[in-house]
């Protein structure tokens, strides 16, 4: 009886240890900006972790292990490595509910008192880009909330809690929360570049394929 107990304990300890070492040693770990959560394809052997670029970098600085890092701005990826490349770019667009019920045509409409706008918090790249675009168009918006990433903002628009947000044009078309896009003219627009780095040798093939993959999903060349 005691032997059975000891064997069970040992099995338990090994199981916990295996789980703690990260499930499936064969998986490639990719840390990517939240705005790419619908753009990057699910594949066997690849494990994604999507979050705001800042949060990804903070986690890596604290010791999280990733094979690939993809961020939505240069400032964040620089904190981790000097060996990175621009892999894609996109511009911004206004995301509204399907059917555009509030008839939003331009950034200036976002200042309307009957329009509920949510933006991303300035601590994430899309938040800063949105602020830049609004500044360029000379529009002052009072957002209802500064969401922690663009996916959350798009969700709010999709369920009707907000009327509009500013998101990445390419990322929006593949977003899980479906939204309609209203284009922003180039003179007000901002180019957002995505940067990727292979943090381990295993990640190199993934990073090399990335520009082509993203191009197919509607992103522009970097």
């Amino acid at each position: 009886m005691r032997k059975a107990g000891a064997a069970l304990s040992l099995a338990l300890v090994l199981a916990v240890a295996a789980a703690a070492c990260g499930g499936g040693d064969g998986d490639l770990t990719v840390y990517a900006a939240a705005s790419l959560s619908s753009a990057l394809p699910q594949a066997d052997g690849v494990r994604y972790s999507f979050a705001g670029s800042q949060q990804l970098v903070a986690q890596i600085e604290q010791g999280a292990e990733a094979d690939v890092l993809v961020t939505a701005d240069e400032r964040t990826i620089k904190r981790v490595t000097a060996d990175y490349d621009a892999v894609a770019s996109t511009t911004l667009a206004i995301a509204v509910a399907p059917g555009n019920p509030k008839r939003i045509d331009a950034l200036a409409d976002l200042a309307g008192s009957n329009i509920a706008v949510v933006l991303a918090d300035p601590s994430v790249p899309i938040g800063r880009y949105s602020a830049d675009a609004l500044a360029k168009a000379n529009v002052t918006v009072r957002p209802k909330s500064l969401e922690l990433d663009v996916e959350a903002a798009l969700q709010k628009v999709a369920i009707g809690e907000a009327d509009a947000t500013i998101a990445y044009a390419a990322a929006t078309t593949t977003a899980t929360a479906k939204a309609e896009l209203v284009p922003i003219p180039p003179e007000h627009n901002v180019v957002a570049r995505y940067y990727a780095a292979a943090l381990t040798d295993r990640g190199k093939p993934y990073v090399e394929d990335l520009p082509a993959v993203l191009h197919k999903r509607g992103f522009d060349d970097p």
Binding site: V118, P143, K144, S145, L146, E147
Partner: peptide, 13 residues
Amino acid sequence: TITFAGNLPGETQ
């Protein structure tokens, strides 16, 4: 809080 009330400094942050 973040899901329902959002995040706006001075109002809900």
